[in-house]
């Protein structure tokens, strides 16, 4: 891959790309399936679609799609655009041409978390205490959980979903055969969740500044403590060897190859940022990683060489979302001030 993530020139100037001033805080971002569009969910109900190709013309801001805040956005696993959820209780499909259709509506609830599964085309989304799976036009409900679902994710093969809530995680089989859910208990409030890319582990971040990881096969668990803040962003590497976690000043990766991370310190590398990492995103294929900070800085790193480069954003506003394009050449970045970037990291 021709990426030079430790390019020292980027310390002074951002890599080439597109920068747009959104009108409201960026909440989430993603690239669509073919990587031609960066999508950004905003706090004013809009979803901005920015062409990844820098030479392409600017697109209009468009009308708000949701009544209040767009709370979640993922690439549409069954379409060419995106899926968004809002605090107006609607789950929308947004085509690459901007046309929308409603997938589900839960009046009075917030559609807060969405996950997509590419191979099966299934979408999982949560509103209140329930999770909903949308597949081939059919919507199925899973729940209620003991509290509002705070995060969800698909298993590697797309046959199950895991939902985080108070007291742990519930795993549902989403096939046509209805099976009782499996529960993984740990006291407290779980606020982030990512299923490992090899399907063997489920990791959560808790309200009490630690990480909890369950091993699916043995249903044993482990806890990693010592974070100065809630770990709201988790990201498994493509090969499932490492779990990156936010809430540290440098890249922090727990090793999951071999015997696993128990009793070992995490691998830490990169420059110490001006604050804490708010969001971290492992590269979809290679050993690279991107991290955004509450200070507005962006860091790109390479876990193999341990080299990294810190990019400073002009407005110093906390980075709220990061997403790699499917080919791994571009990075979408959004911050609290509403600055939306699509960076081209090719050499």
């Amino acid at each position: 891959m021709k990426l030079d993530l430790a390019n020292p020139a980027w310390r002074q100037t951002l890599p080439p790309g597109r920068s747009v001033a959104g009108d409201a805080p960026a909440v989430a971002c993603a690239f669509n399936k073919d990587g031609s569009l960066g999508g950004f969910a905003l706090g004013d109900g809009r979803v901005r679609l920015l062409p990844a190709d820098i030479s392409a013309g600017e697109t209009a801001a468009g009308e708000p799609l949701h009544g209040g805040v767009v709370l979640a956005l993922v690439d549409d696993p069954a379409g060419d655009g995106f899926v968004s959820g809002g605090d107006d209780g609607r789950l929308l499909r947004i085509a690459a041409d901007g046309r929308t259709s409603e997938l589900a509506c839960q009046k009075g609830k917030w559609f807060e978390h969405i996950a997509g599964h590419r191979a099966t085309g299934a979408i999982a989304a949560s509103a209140g205490k329930n999770a909903y799976v949308v597949k081939a036009g059919e919507v199925r409900e899973f729940g209620p959980h003991q509290s509002t679902v705070a995060a969800l994710d698909f298993s590697k093969d797309g046959s199950r979903i895991a939902c985080a809530h108070y007291g742990g995680v519930t795993v549902w089989s989403i096939g046509q055969v209805v099976l009782p859910p499996r529960r993984f208990a740990w006291r407290g409030s779980h606020v982030a969740l990512k299923w490992s890319t090899d399907g063997k582990f489920i990791a959560t971040g808790t309200q009490e500044n630690d990480i909890h990881v369950w091993r699916m096969a043995q249903a044993t668990d482990m806890r990693m403590q010592g974070y100065p803040a809630k770990v709201k962003s988790l990201s498994w590497t493509a090969d499932a060897r490492f779990l990156y976690t936010s809430a540290q000043p440098v890249f922090t990766a727990w090793p999951f190859s071999g015997k696993g991370p128990e009793g070992k310190p995490p691998l830490q590398f990169g420059d110490e940022g001006a604050g804490l990492m708010t969001v971290v995103a492992a590269h979809p294929a290679a050993e690279f990683v991107a991290g955004g900070y509450d200070s507005g800085e962006l860091q790109l790193g390479d876990i193999k060489t341990k080299r990294s480069v810190v990019l400073k954003m002009a407005d110093g506003s906390a980075i709220t979302c990061l997403a790699w394009s499917p080919d791994g050449f571009r990075l979408a970045v959004g911050n609290e001030a509403g600055t939306l970037l699509v960076l081209d990291l090719r050499r």
């Binding site: 805080p25 004013d44 805040v69 709370l71 605090d87």
Partner: peptide, 14 residues
């Protein structure tokens, strides 16, 4: 915990 979530959501508003 629901208040934490709702306040975070409200703070994202324009």
């Amino acid at each position: 915990g629901d208040l934490i979530r709702i306040i975070e959501g409200l703070m994202k508003r324009k």
